[in-house]
Design a protein around this nucleic acid. Structure first.
Lengths: 124, 124
DNA sequence: TGTCGAGTTCGATGTTTGTCGAAACCAAGA
DNA sequence: TCTTGGTTTCGACAAACATCGAACTCGACA
């Protein structure tokens, strides 16, 4: 908390365990907890779209003021979904002046992608 | 339903739309529904472990009789979770004699992996 | 035909989640 | 300092979910 006060993110999810493709080796129970939390965060249509809007945004970040009007739900709800993505370690938030900007955290995304990597059917 | 009766799977989820990395282009709303359903299926610790056990199983398939005793929950619950994975299009089930075997459906997994692929920070 | 074992479906229950409106917070200007 | 606009937090509520035990289905085997 000794930062200058604009850091809104919580978890140091670069410390998530595990990662070889799940087709290669079984996921241990401890890792499953953290990893499933990330998948769950992507398991909502609105959050998945938010995530993709943030990940594909110009300049590597997206303003909440641009995200909110893209959906039919209230700003409260968008804020809630962004919090879930934040707590899952998938995005980072920073306040600048009146606006809050979200940017992706590539680390965890990469881990999830690796986990889902499908190995070739073992040419035996 | 005119099949010989051993096919327990439901969806033809090879027909899921979309797929370039979400860091490259925004996910359209229609695709988000189907894709988020798959992520949600992986968003539970037990299901994620089940999925990894099935995906990494010897011979490309796992018997329910081997999956169930690996967890502290009832067989009913495992059956429920397997159904969720099935309906999400992530696994396939087949009954042989007295036992039921589950195998991964690599198609959807590959799509999810691609979606999460992180592009290099655009060397401009 | 009757029984047994493996899995699934059904029905019920407590918990989690998505959504909202109201209130609070925070930075910028007047 | 007061107001205003953008965002998050709080409190509430209905819908969805994880879990269980009981009942059912499906093959195998007497």
């Amino acid at each position: 908390m000794s930062k200058s006060g604009t850091q809104l993110t919580v978890i140091d999810t670069d410390a998530v365990p595990c990662c070889p493709p799940m087709a290669t080796s079984r996921i241990p129970a401890e890792s499953a907890a953290a990893l499933s939390r990330a998948f769950k965060a992507l398991g909502d249509p609105i959050r998945l779209q938010l995530m993709s809007m943030i990940a594909s945004a110009e300049g590597g970040e997206a303003c909440v003021c641009d995200l909110t009007p893209a959906f039919e739900v209230s700003g409260t709800t968008i804020s809630h979904h962004l919090k879930v993505l934040r707590e899952a370690g998938l995005v980072d938030a920073e306040r600048r002046a009146s606006w809050v900007y979200y940017r992706p955290r590539p680390g965890l995304m990469r881990q999830l992608a690796t986990l889902l990597t499908v190995t070739e059917p073992a040419a035996t």
